[in-house]
C-alpha cells in the first residue's frame, strides 16, 4: 500500500511537472476556439501526405511567396517532398539571385541553383512593410512552430476571413479575421476558391488550398519530422527491450536480499 502511495506520489509529481505546463499555458488572448483538423502528420505515427505537400508548395509558390519569405529553406529541400531533381532545378532557375561580382567589380546576377536559399519577395524589411500597408509579412520557414496552436491556427487564419460584424470598424487596409488576435489583420484574404490550378485533378476549394498549404508549411518548419518519428519508434522499442532485460537482471541480482 505504502509502495503504491509512493508510486502514485512519484507519478503525480512527474505528471505535475511534465504535463502541467501544457494545460497551464495561458489561454490565447482570443476567445475563438480553433477548428481542429485531422492532419495527416498529427499523432506519433503521422506522416506528411506527399500529394498535399506538392499541392501546398504550389499554393505557397503562386500565392504566399508574393509577400512571405521562407529564408531557411533551400530549393534542394524540395526533393524531400517528392519533386524530381529536374523539377527542382527548373524551379530554382526561375529566379535570379545575386551572383557576386564580375571582373570589373560590378555586381552580377545569375539564375538560381538548387543549393540557393528560397528567394525572398522583398529585399529588406522596409520594402516588405511599404508594400504591405506598414505590416510585416512574417517569414514562413518557422511560422507553424511560432504560433500557439500551430497548423490548426494557420488553417484557421486562412479560412477565418469574413465581413466585419456590424458595429466593428476596420482601420484602412485591414481585413476582418475572427481567429486573428484583435480580429484586424493586415493580410488581405490570400486564398479563395480557385486561387490556384491543381495539376492532379484535386478541386481547389478554399478549404483544400488552406489544408494543403498548411501541410506544406508544417513540413517547411519541421522537415525532420518523419525521420524523427521513425527513429523514435526504434529507440522506444529498443529502450523497452532494454528495460525488460535490465529489470530481469535486477530481479536476479536482488533475489536473495531480504
Amino acid at each position: 500500500m505504502r509502495r503504491l502511495i509512493q508510486l502514485a506520489a512519484l507519478a503525480a509529481l512527474s505528471l505535475g511537472a511534465a504535463f502541467g505546463p501544457a494545460s497551464l499555458t495561458p489561454a490565447r488572448a482570443d476567445d475563438e476556439s480553433l477548428p481542429h483538423v485531422n492532419w495527416s502528420f498529427s499523432g506519433p505515427f503521422g506522416t506528411y501526405d506527399r500529394a498535399a505537400l506538392q499541392r501546398g508548395f504550389l499554393v505557397y509558390q503562386q500565392v504566399c511567396s508574393a509577400c512571405h519569405s521562407m529564408n531557411y529553406l533551400y530549393y534542394r529541400n524540395l526533393e524531400e517532398i517528392g519533386l524530381t531533381e529536374e523539377q527542382v532545378k527548373a524551379i530554382a532557375a526561375s529566379v535570379t539571385v545575386p551572383g557576386g561580382v564580375n571582373d570589373q567589380g560590378q555586381p552580377i546576377e545569375r539564375p538560381g541553383l538548387p543549393s540557393d536559399h528560397f528567394k525572398a519577395p522583398f529585399p529588406n524589411e522596409q520594402a516588405a512593410r511599404a508594400a504591405s500597408n506598414g505590416a510585416l509579412p512574417p517569414d514562413q520557414s518557422d511560422l507553424v512552430n511560432a504560433r500557439e496552436g500551430g497548423p490548426d491556427y494557420i488553417y484557421a487564419i486562412l479560412i477565418g476571413y469574413s465581413d466585419p460584424p456590424p458595429g466593428v470598424k476596420l482601420m484602412p487596409g485591414m481585413s476582418y479575421n475572427k481567429y486573428f488576435p484583435g480580429h484586424q489583420i493586415a493580410m488581405p484574404q490570400p486564398l479563395q476558391d480557385g486561387s490556384v490550378q491543381y495539376t492532379d485533378g484535386t478541386k481547389p476549394t478554399l478549404d483544400q488550398e488552406a489544408k494543403d498549404v498548411v501541410t506544406f508549411l508544417t513540413w517547411a518548419a519541421n522537415p525532420e519530422m518523419e525521420e524523427r518519428k521513425r527513429d523514435g519508434v526504434r529507440v522506444v522499442l529498443f529502450l523497452l527491450f532494454l528495460t525488460g532485460v535490465v529489470y530481469a537482471v535486477k530481479r536476479r541480482v536482488w533475489v536473495d536480499v531480504h
Binding site: 529507440v235 529502450l239 528495460t243
Partner: peptide, 18 residues
C-alpha cells in the same frame, strides 16, 4: 539505478522524438 535510468530515458525519448 539502471532500471530507473531506462524508464526515465523512455520518457525522455518520448519527448525528443514525438
Amino acid at each position: 539505478d539502471s532500471v530507473g535510468l531506462c524508464v526515465f530515458f523512455l520518457i525522455y525519448a518520448g519527448f525528443i522524438f514525438f
